[in-house]
Amino acid sequence: MIYCDYAATTPIMEDALSVYMEISRKHYGNASSLHDIGSNAASVLENGREMLATTLQTASNHIYYTSGGTEGNRLAIDTLLRCCTGKKHVISTMMEHSSVYYHLKNLHKTGDVEVTFLTGDKQGLISLEDLAANIRPDTCLVSIQHVNGETGVIQPIEQIGLFLRKQGIYFHSDCVQSFGKIKIDLANIAVDAITISSHKIFGPKGVGAVYFHPRVVLIENPVKMNNEKGIRPGTVDVASATAFAFAADYMHKHLAEHLSHLQNIKKYFIEQLAVHQLPLIPVAENNISCPSIVGCLTATTQGDYILLEYNRYGIAISSGSACSLGQQQIPRAIMPLLHNKEDGNRYIRFSFSHLTTFNDIDQVIDISAKIFSRIKEEQSVL
């Protein structure tokens, strides 16, 4: 099997797995317990938090562990909203991950906040002009993702953050798809909260983290929470959290070489699509998209059908976010990139990592040629 679905999840790296197993055996205590076994677990947890904070160039007391990206996004939004005294307007985008989009939709429906969803330009990019035009006197929070997991489009969060900081508006960014793949320098990004996740960077599943800027005076959840300084419930998984930190440390130490490799892999893949005249059309412009993701429209065939054909040949790809599959909906993130809504049914996504080789790409191209050649023959018979 050739795996080209790294945007959905990644296999846990061996070092992180070893750390997970060792911590599970030796430091199994509840980090909140007062006895020595609990204290030892707490020490291990904090050591991991320090390591994770170093990858983000921040202090460890600004990092809060979660169960992953979905909880992290909701926790970040809800926590920042508690700090928005007397203001109820939120701005986000139509392209957000479902954990942000549907959470905000529900908060809007229940009347807790009013939400404006921006659509962006033809690539789904949000401009400062569009953002500024939608800010109201009661705007308290903006939530805009860094890298879209379906198209790879990178939002200009550095410029957005600086603009919002001047307006005194909180800014949250879902960085689940960018963390460990492109540089995130919190020292130079005016962001109040970001969300990150372990399983996107070769760590274990079921763990993530939220960073809160020190200017945010956190207000505890009114429903009493016992962990992570009172902002979330549940016993922290010390083994998973520490393994996450080790995976993050590895990815950031090798970020430059991985990024260079991914840029070359993506360039080669797109070139080979053209050389072999394959009916796969990349949808996002290369200069504004993450090198790990290539979303394509097929010429005439349903994306789900193509996905199954690739799977039959031993290649794993996606037709969109794994969190959206099964809903029989065209991914919202690709809508700005389409000429018409029906085009969305022909969308497939290839996503790569530092483990992807040029030989992998050659095999994907060869099998793509076989698939589309057979489809062309079948359609000519019809």
Rank of each mutant, 00 (worst) to 15 (best):
L131D: 01
I91P: 00
A193W: 05
T300R: 14
S92K: 04
L34E: 12
I334V: 06
Y347P: 00
I288A: 10
V364G: 07
D185T: 07
T55Q: 02
H97D: 13
I126V: 15
G206C: 04
E257Q: 15
V238N: 03
D138W: 09
N359W: 02
I306N: 05
G161H: 06
N287H: 12
P137H: 03
V176F: 05
P336R: 09
I293R: 05
V381S: 09
T235Q: 11
K253G: 02
K266A: 03
E342G: 02
Q57L: 12
N226H: 12
I135A: 06
Y3L: 05
L131M: 11
Y64V: 09
C323F: 10
Y28T: 10
A31K: 03
V176P: 00
H252M: 14
S32L: 12
G314R: 11
D130Q: 09
L382F: 07
Q123V: 11
R232K: 15
K105V: 08
F163C: 03
T55F: 00
M94R: 08
I154Q: 05
I288Q: 03
H354N: 07
K253C: 06
D343F: 05
P336T: 07
K266N: 13
Q263T: 14
R49E: 02
L338D: 06
T93D: 05
G29M: 09
S32E: 15
V44W: 02
C83E: 07
D130V: 10
T110F: 10
I361V: 15
R374F: 07
N148E: 13
C140I: 08
L218Q: 11
A132G: 03
I196W: 02
L17G: 04
Q379V: 11
V217N: 12
V100S: 06
K229S: 15
T54L: 14
S198H: 09
V90T: 06
L338K: 09
V153C: 09
R346D: 11
D249V: 00
A299K: 13
N61T: 07
F358S: 07
V238L: 05
P204I: 04
M1W: 07
C140H: 04
I288G: 09
S319T: 15
M335E: 14
R82T: 01
K109Q: 15
K181G: 09
Y6Q: 07
L118C: 10
A322V: 14
K376N: 12
H339M: 13
P214L: 12
G168D: 10
F246S: 04
K376D: 11
A239F: 01
E22N: 14
K205P: 00
S60R: 12
S324N: 13
Y64I: 10
C84F: 04
A16R: 02
A369R: 12
A16P: 01
T85D: 14
Y3W: 09
Y250W: 08
K224T: 12
I367P: 00
S380M: 15
A16E: 01
N148V: 05
A245Y: 03
V147F: 06
L278R: 02
I330D: 04
L325D: 08
E220A: 15
R82D: 00
F179K: 11
E377T: 14
Y347M: 13
L262D: 05
Y101Q: 04
E309T: 05
D343S: 14
T66H: 02
V147C: 14
K253R: 15
M51I: 08
R74L: 03
H339K: 15
H89I: 00
R165W: 08
T85W: 06
L75M: 13
T54E: 13
G303E: 03
I371S: 03
L255G: 02
L125E: 09
I91A: 01
I201Y: 01
